[in-house]
Computed example of a mutant assay.
Amino acid sequence: MSEPVLAEHRAVEGGAVAGWGVLEQAIELARSGEAFVLATVVWREAPTSGQQGSRAIYTASGEIYGWIGGACAEPVFIREAIATLEAGTPRLLALGASDRFGDLPQGTTAVAMSCQSEGALQIYLEPVVAEPHLVIVGSSPMATTLSALASQLDWRVELVTGSEFSEGLLTPQSIVVVATQGHGDEDVLGGALKAAPAYVGLVASSRRGESVRALLVAQGADQAQLSTLRVPAGLDLGSTSHKEVAVSILAELVQLRAQGAFAAPVTPQAPTTATAIDPVCGMTVQIDPAAVSLEVGDEVFYFCCARCRTAYAREQGVA
């Protein structure tokens, strides 16, 4: 396909191209560790500006990427995305005039709207929580094997040497496995414990672990932090080879993850843009210079569309 024709094709299929761009953004957000909601338009009934396959993202920090509909759909999307993040479960959202819904799948959240377009949308909202962040410190065969195994689970894995390790690599949800084999164990553990990650484990025998604990205490390590140190790291599987040790550590981490040990608390931030409730249809409306409004006495009312404004003006007996 020639470049001019390709450009024209992209223009015609603009919604699809934009949708793939949102997926690329989703991958970047997942790698960064930020929770978000991925929204996809799975059905539409014309006339509506939202297209089937259109996608948007709402992050826990209140950022929006992509586009799934116009001024009527966006405030509802934000509100429901926040609820989806808080619940941590996906949902199907139906937007439009109530007489356009038809038979909806069980569990669908229906939101009646009275937009001028009179179209309808069904949007799938999927919460995305970051995969565990595993930092393995060491260059032993066990460390390499553990890195490879955890990567197969799509975890975010960083394999670093003791000299490359720093507290800046960690977050409160990070997992740290120290496998430096006696080469600066105490220094790495001291830094890791100060960062207070979700898990710190040392690959060593119980006897070696007690020696390391004693040295950390002598160096002034906090007792509460030391109590979180797991030595030896991993489940007791009676393992002997470095591959079996790696399996035992990953097994323990998978078990802890299933128990919610590494889950980050999600507290989504609402956007800073002020909102109001349309007094006619009850929709949430963003207050901005382009908003449809009507001044009645000393009060300003905002509407999702001109139709609601006209209806309210007629009701109030104002122009």
Score class of each variant (00 low, 15 high):
Gly102Glu: 07
Val247Ser: 07
Glu186Pro: 01
Ser227Asp: 12
Gln269Lys: 14
Gly102Gln: 02
Ser206Pro: 05
Ala291Val: 10
Glu244Phe: 02
Ala276Met: 06
Thr273His: 09
Ala18Cys: 03
Ile287Gly: 02
Ile57Met: 09
Leu250Phe: 06
Ala112Asp: 14
Ser211Trp: 10
Glu299Tyr: 11
Ala274Phe: 03
Ser2Tyr: 14
Ala264Trp: 01
Gly62Cys: 02
Gly88Asn: 06
Pro271Val: 05
Gln122Phe: 13
Gln106Thr: 15
Gln25Trp: 07
Ala274Val: 12
Val178Tyr: 10
Leu95Cys: 05
Tyr124Leu: 11
Ala246Lys: 03
Ala179Val: 03
Ala198Asp: 01
Thr310Tyr: 07
Ala218Asn: 15
Ala81Arg: 02
Gly191Val: 07
Phe303Tyr: 12
Val188Trp: 06
Ala251Gln: 00
Asp154Pro: 00
His133Tyr: 03
Thr59Gly: 09
Gln116Trp: 13
His242Thr: 09
Asp298Ile: 12
Arg91Ala: 05
Ala56Asn: 07
Ala270Met: 04
Glu295Val: 15
Lys194Ser: 13
Ala87Thr: 12
Gly138His: 05
Ala60Phe: 06
Leu189Ser: 00
Leu253Asn: 00
Glu80Cys: 00
Ser166Thr: 14
Ala274Lys: 14
Glu131Ala: 15
Glu34Ile: 09
Thr180Asn: 06
Val137Asp: 01
Val176Pro: 10
Ala35Met: 08
Ala198Pro: 05
Ala221Glu: 14
Phe262His: 05
Thr109Gln: 08
Pro271Tyr: 09
Leu149Arg: 11
Thr89Phe: 04
Lys243Asn: 13
Thr48Pro: 03
Ala233Glu: 02
Ala143Val: 06
Ser98Tyr: 00
Pro141Lys: 06
Glu295His: 08
Phe262Gln: 00
Arg79Gly: 01
Ile57Cys: 02
Ala291Pro: 02
Gln316Leu: 12
Leu169Trp: 07
Val178Phe: 09
Thr84Lys: 08
Arg91Leu: 13
Met113Asp: 02
Val177His: 07
Tyr199Ala: 09
Val266Asn: 03
Pro232Ile: 04
Ala150Ser: 13
His133Arg: 10
Tyr302Ala: 10
Thr145Met: 12
Ile82Cys: 05
Val247Trp: 01
His9Gln: 14
Glu118Pro: 09
Ala264Met: 11
Gln181Glu: 12
Val17His: 11
Thr59Gln: 05
Cys308Asn: 11
Val135Gly: 02
Ala204His: 04
Gln116Pro: 00
Pro90Val: 09
Thr48Cys: 08
Leu253Lys: 12
Gly282Phe: 12
Ala319Val: 08
Lys243Trp: 05
Asp185Gly: 07
